[in-house]
Design a protein around this nucleic acid. Sequence first.
DNA 1: AGACCCTGTGGGAGCGCTCCCGTGGACGGG
DNA 2: CCCGTCCACGGGAGCGCTCCCACAGGGTCT
Lengths: 343, 343
Amino acid sequence: MSVQPQRAARPTLEDVAERAGVSRATASRVLNSSPRVSPEAHEAVTAAVLELGYTPNHAARSLVTRRTDAVAVVFSEPEPKIFDDPHFGQLIRAAARALSSADVQMVLMLVHSPDDQARAERFLAGGHVDGALLFAPHKGDQLPSIARKLPLPVVYAGRPWGPLRGLHLVDNDNIGGSVLATEHLMSLGRKRIVSVTGTVDEFSSIDRVEGWRTAVGADEAMTELMTESGNFNRDGGKLAMAALLKRVPDLDAVFVASDLMAAGALDALREAGRRVPEDVAVVGFDDHPLIAPHTEPPLTTIKQDANEQVAHMVAHLLRLLRDEPVRARREVLPTILVRRQST
Amino acid sequence: MSVQPQRAARPTLEDVAERAGVSRATASRVLNSSPRVSPEAHEAVTAAVLELGYTPNHAARSLVTRRTDAVAVVFSEPEPKIFDDPHFGQLIRAAARALSSADVQMVLMLVHSPDDQARAERFLAGGHVDGALLFAPHKGDQLPSIARKLPLPVVYAGRPWGPLRGLHLVDNDNIGGSVLATEHLMSLGRKRIVSVTGTVDEFSSIDRVEGWRTAVGADEAMTELMTESGNFNRDGGKLAMAALLKRVPDLDAVFVASDLMAAGALDALREAGRRVPEDVAVVGFDDHPLIAPHTEPPLTTIKQDANEQVAHMVAHLLRLLRDEPVRARREVLPTILVRRQST
DNA sequence: AGACCCTGTGGGAGCGCTCCCGTGGACGGG
DNA sequence: CCCGTCCACGGGAGCGCTCCCACAGGGTCT
């Protein structure tokens, strides 16, 4: 019936333009820092923005630019680990930091079930984000092959399964790290170096066996004898170590493919009455802050820097989004040895 | 010059409507499951959507509905912890699960610096999300007072500092849990029960002291004597326990306000030659899966369910977003005792 | 039989923004 | 002095969607 004045609505670009005494087009130019704007107009618009507390309507902008200024961060983990991997928290933290300082929204997706996967596919295909960071290390995970069909820039963490052609990825030097670990043990004069390995469905694990194998120069039979999988968990590490002790009674060193498993391995060694590092030297992998410094004895381990990896992934993706050239599709980050008392 | 056919663009609702032989309005009704649609139209539109692989343009929809179908999850932590708290990972996981199953995008924000805070404020005020979950336990954190001025539904994790009037929050029963812990120790016949507390700038910590205090019936002087802060980290827990052993040599039990500190406390007790649980019984708090079962001896502790808390927060927020009534502004979730070998 | 409602549908406006294109004025060179 | 060039700026279309409103058609009630 009666015409209401309607205030308190968020100011639009139109309001800003009016207040600044310019057209909407010019105001828009200022907001997008176009060069073709006079200093006066620039100042007037900037002032109006401040006075009105104007914030651009993201949806409207997105509608016409066809950009979203959002990036998906996808963790695909077929069987959700019951005990949360704290590495995960580090990765998320790093991603949040790197993306938000680039003023890009981070949309987090955790994919476990086929349901989740379908949802993720719909979401990524739906144009809700400009690009994605994909953490999908496990063999048989469909998500990488789904993702590579999408018209969407994707940067992978580590090597996914399947063909690598055309993929952009940032990996840690797992092979180099495990060579480092094993050579460290050899330099200590250790002769019988066994290894507790992770799960065979992740390249990070496969690479760590490979590093050990080349360093000690093991053939297939010897590898079979001197390695045992600990499934990347603590109890698994303990069981694997116990099995190795039985199979290779004269072992004097062990390279364990994760700190968590190494903690379990230390338990097994203690129960078997072997002293660490006197009888058996132990090297882990990860340099997990919650574990490595606190085992008994504190753990010598290989540090891989989650922050660094994610920062590289984000930088890589941002370059792709801006159509800037990338140096290489695949980056491999160095790993270093952190020495503590277990060697 | 010449007119290009222009294909391969994403289909619009117009395309769907045309294919289904209905108007755009009807197609829209089907997509938004309006009741006023004939079965025939419904079927035709559904088929067309499938055939064309249509996905609604989120920006366009958001522009008119003024909803974003996104929710911010904000963690505010004035001093970013160097050692990642794994509790954090659990919370994020739970939030991701709960939100994605409601088909709401989760935008994660980690706030450390004043810079981050300003960004967060701009973001939340900018209408980029429909609501927020806010984790800001620390005293002096500005974010809660900023957030409560925003015209945006916010659900808090735990009690933030400042006035609670009008706030929506989901808290764990820290007081109840610590009463439980302390009474458990008393029921074991322990007479001199001390407590290692957290930091005084978090209510969760304050409440846990309060629970201990009421259960043992301590006055101020006794509280001063028999409690010591461990700053919620492992080394702090060890130092605090050592201090308490010196101050109260005849102590026979300790309630430690976090599992991580409890691990440190166990170290201190071991070094002091006190047996656990024979000489000193120990109860922790959190039931941290990476810590509690693996201490020496395994830790009796109070379980607070992160999944449950976040699920309640999400449900609460969704109700607010849908303008549905909420039962209570404030929910307090129960905590339970998990008994292991340290008592 | 006329007046009524109720249900399914389509036309069209408009959300707030960007960007194309046209215009007017300042400026420099022939 | 006039014409061409260039730069700052405004008008207006249109991105893809929702929702208001009008309307046709069939049923129900007086």
